[in-house]
Structures are given as C-alpha cells and as structure tokens.
C-alpha cells in the first residue's frame, strides 16, 4: 500500500511517500521570512508555489506515479490556517482526481509516530520542541496526552525572538547554539517551572533587557542552559510520573546538540533509554504524515477541514 503525506502546518512544505510503512521519499522545502517572524500568507504562498515541485521530487525519488497512490494523508493541524489550507486543498484535489481516500493527521501525533518508527522505542515520552510548539507528550489509555507544555510562547519562538534582537536571522537556533559553545559565564536567568508546565515569556523579556550588557556568547550560553534545563526537568517529571523509561526529542529544536546531550545524561542517570532523532525525521516532514496516515488507514473521519487548534489528545488512537 502506497501512502502519500503532505505537511504544511507552518514553515515547512513536505511530501512523504511510504510503502507498507517503509519510507520511500521525504522531500521538503522551508519558507524563510526575509526579515522578522513568519507571515502566514507569505508562507502559504511559498507552499502554493513550491508544492507541485516538492510533490514531483518525492514521486521521482520514490519512483511511483500518482495513480499508484492508495491513500492521501495531510497534516490537519495544529498550525497556521493559510498554510494548512494549502496542504488540504492539494490533498483534496489529488484524492478526488484519483478517487482515493483522505486521512487527516494530527501533526503532533505524527511527530511521535515517526519517532517510534525510526527509533524503535515503543512507548517513549516525547519532548516536542519547535517554533510554536513545546509539549511533553505521553501515551495513556488510548490517547497521546500533553503532560506538560509551555504556558505561553514556544521554545523556537523564544530563540528566534532573541535571535532577532541579537541580529541573527531566522531560524536563530543553529547560530545561538554556535555562540553558546563559546560562552563561559553563566548569567542567572529566571527558571520557570509551573508544575508540569514551563513558561518562557518572562525569560524572553529578561534576556531582551540584558542584551548589550553582556557578551553575546554568554547570553546564548545562559539562555540555552536555562531553557533546556527546564525542558529536561519537565520531561523527567513526565517520565517519573507516568512510569516511562525512554525519551525522544522531536521538532525543529531537536537539531540542537546540547539539548540532545542533556537528554542523554538525564536518561542515563535514571537508567532510561534515549534515542537521538535524525534531523530529517525530527523536524516537520511529509513522511511522518504519510506514515501516520498509513497507521490510521481504516479510520472513518467526518471532518477533514483544517484545524488550527487541533489538540494532540483529541485523536483516539485505535491502532496501538
């Protein structure tokens, strides 16, 4: 069975093709704003323009034709409505044309499913860290439950906003990581854990006020160390409370080496397993949508319209 999946929740437009659960192609292109943060309309335009090209690239790579696809899956949310619409319309057009079934996939669920697939961990806690999302997700009684999350902005958002103030272009994460490696002096920043949740907006304000007063390297170092430690603590709490013995980190920020190192140390200390996720599958991608669509192939869905506020725990998991 061939499944084609389209991801278009935010910056990334991705097309993945899988055959019986094995990835054949995973192509993507990422919209990069010229200045400032994401402009939803501009990102959607990027997806409209590049969509057909990415689609063709994926089909060529997988060496299949559209008529061979048995099922079309798309990322139904959460995400930015203009971006979600692109994926939905393209999927609808293709599925109608070839008279095939459509499956709407929850973006966060797709992250954890592809993580389970590529790491082989059956029941990990997932720390999901991207621009807009910061969640600690665990599986309980047939659903993926958000155990802890940010009470305000996403971690990637915090890094990008701080990056802009430091003159670093989007996405700021890699450059912040590079600068952080040269930082030596820890500047005390607010460390905000609220039960299982974290909060970043206070840190964002605090950091904006110390820019210029300290070396950039030290600011980046202190920022990373503080917010990553908070995320580790939230993840560890979820593991302890929900009795899970493995961790994976997904999302764009999962590309950060220091964050992964902290995950490894934390897991080693509690005799848990940690598996590093390759960037290809950690960041937003079409393969995770195709793969989750494959898992959900027998679902009957009434509402296929884009859901910008689609909650992770709204999906009943019937295949696990």
């Amino acid at each position: 069975m061939y499944v084609l999946g389209i991801e278009s929740t935010a910056h990334t437009f991705g097309v993945g093709i899988i055959k019986d659960g094995e990835v054949l192609a995973n192509e993507r292109d990422i919209y990069r704003p010229k200045a400032g943060g994401i402009i939803p309309g501009e990102a959607a335009l990027h997806h409209y323009e590049l969509g057909p090209i990415i689609l063709k690239r994926a089909l060529d790579k997988a060496k299949v034709s559209l008529s061979q696809i048995d099922l079309f899956a798309f990322s139904q949310g959460p995400g930015l409505l203009p971006c979600l619409k692109v994926g939905y319309q393209m999927t609808k057009f293709l599925a109608d044309k070839y008279d095939k079934k459509i499956i709407g996939v929850n973006h966060c669920v797709a992250h954890i499913e592809i993580a389970r697939k590529v790491t082989g961990l059956n029941d990990p806690v997932m720390l999901y860290v991207s621009g807009g999302n910061t969640q600690v997700v665990t599986y309980e009684n047939g659903r993926y439950v958000v155990f802890g999350e940010t009470q305000d902005i996403g971690i990637g958002n915090l890094l990008d906003k701080t990056g802009r103030r430091l003159g670093i272009p989007f996405p700021a994460g890699p450059k912040i990581e590079e600068l952080a490696k040269q930082g030596k002096n820890y500047i005390k920043l607010p460390y905000v854990i609220k039960g299982m949740d974290v909060s970043f907006s206070g840190i964002e304000t605090f950091v904006s006020q110390i820019i210029g007063k300290h070396k950039m390297e030290d600011i980046c170092f202190s920022l990373q160390e503080t917010v990553f430690a908070m995320l580790m603590e939230a993840s560890e709490r979820a593991m302890a409370y929900c009795k899970k013995d493995s961790l994976i980190i997904a999302g764009g920020v999962a590309a950060n080496t220091r964050l992964n190192k902290m995950g490894k140390i934390m897991c080693d200390e509690r005799n848990a397993r940690f598996e590093f996720m390759k960037k290809e599958y950690a960041g937003d991608n079409g393969a995770m949508i195709a793969f989750t669509g494959y898992l959900m192939r027998d679902y009957v869905q009434d509402d296929l319209s884009p859901r910008p506020d689609f909650r992770t725990d709204a999906v009943e998991i019937k295949y696990r």
Partner: peptide, 9 residues
C-alpha cells in the same frame, strides 16, 4: 542533576 550546569543546579 548532571544535565544542568552547577550554576543552575
């Protein structure tokens, strides 16, 4: 906690 720097820990 060895994952965080002593200044935080």
């Amino acid at each position: 906690k060895k994952y965080r720097v002593p200044e935080i820990d």
